[in-house]
């Protein structure tokens, strides 16, 4: 049982699976990207500029500058989470794409690894699009920003794992609402995207340590604002540790779901 759990049968064919997703993505990437960056842009204008006019500087920064790096992290998170819940589920349940793939030399684990790669891809693309926008707005203060996309990749893997675990545990399309309202939205609100957590009750501050987005926000904000130090490495290690811990679960759950 436990041996099955850890035995992950991935081959180079994952690249063929990933390529399939890229072909689909490239068919309407303009629409995809413009919709996805529309929402963070709304936040940037409404909160960063509108509300920001009345807000005291945060951690010594104008509100817009504080907010922008947080939105990079959160839009990467949402892009991946949508892809690896709704997207994955539709491919599995309605389109039977997984079933078609595993009738070829592709294994179920290749399919799931392909989903993870796509999740990573989405995180990097959507995170980077926002980075480009805020760079143009002059909100990026440091060349360390070049390390942000790799960080988005690791974060993307984390959010992809989380999302597919949810998909594997509660494979019903109605239940994805709960994923977003019960998990993603609280993460979005209480991970330091909009305000430092220091003003909140100690309990919430402590709880934030368990939020993956909190660590991703810290990393992106550090890199974008050039506030770098050894503490960034610890943030990264937190993410990597959780990735390692979660890694076998989506494979196990989805295998159990699809292969009968």
């Amino acid at each position: 049982m436990f041996r099955d759990f850890l035995k992950i049968d991935v081959s180079p064919l994952v690249w063929a699976v990933f390529r399939r997703h890229l072909i689909v993505f490239s068919r309407n990437w303009k629409v995809n990207i413009s919709f996805n960056f529309f929402e963070p842009l709304l936040y940037l204008v409404a909160l960063g500029i509108g509300l920001g006019a009345y807000v005291r500087p945060m951690e010594g920064l104008p509100y817009l500058n504080y907010l922008a790096p947080g939105l990079v992290a959160s839009s990467a998170m949402f892009a991946t989470a949508y892809e690896c819940t709704y997207g994955t589920f539709i491919r599995m349940e309605f389109q039977k794409t997984f079933q078609a793939m595993v009738s070829t030399p592709v294994s179920m684990d290749d399919v799931i690894a392909g989903e993870l790669l796509y999740g990573i891809f989405k995180s990097v693309v959507y995170g980077s699009v926002i980075i480009v926008v805020i760079t143009l707005l002059g909100l990026v203060k440091s060349p360390w920003v070049l390390l942000a996309p790799p960080v988005m990749a690791v974060a993307g893997l984390l959010f992809a794992l989380l999302s597919i675990v949810w998909t594997g545990l509660v494979p019903r399309i109605d239940n994805f609402n709960y994923f977003f309202s019960l998990i993603m939205t609280p993460l979005f609100l209480f991970s330091g995207v909009f305000f430092p957590l220091t003003g909140l009750p100690v309990l919430i501050q402590k709880a934030a340590w368990f939020s993956p987005l909190y660590h991703v926000v810290n990393l992106t904000r550090g890199l974008i604002l050039g506030q770098v130090g050894i503490w960034l490495v610890w943030e990264l290690l937190w993410i990597i540790a959780v990735v390692v811990l979660l890694f076998p679960f989506p494979f196990y759950l989805m295998r159990r779901l699809v292969i009968r």
Binding site: L13, R20, I23, Q95, T97, A100
Partner: peptide
Amino acid sequence: KRRLGVVPQENNLDPDLKVLQNLLVYASFF
């Protein structure tokens, strides 16, 4: 599986891809 062809009971063509692309992407899995 490398040497089999499979026509499942339920069609599972890839609706995200065009007709020819369906064949080409499938070929890439081999």
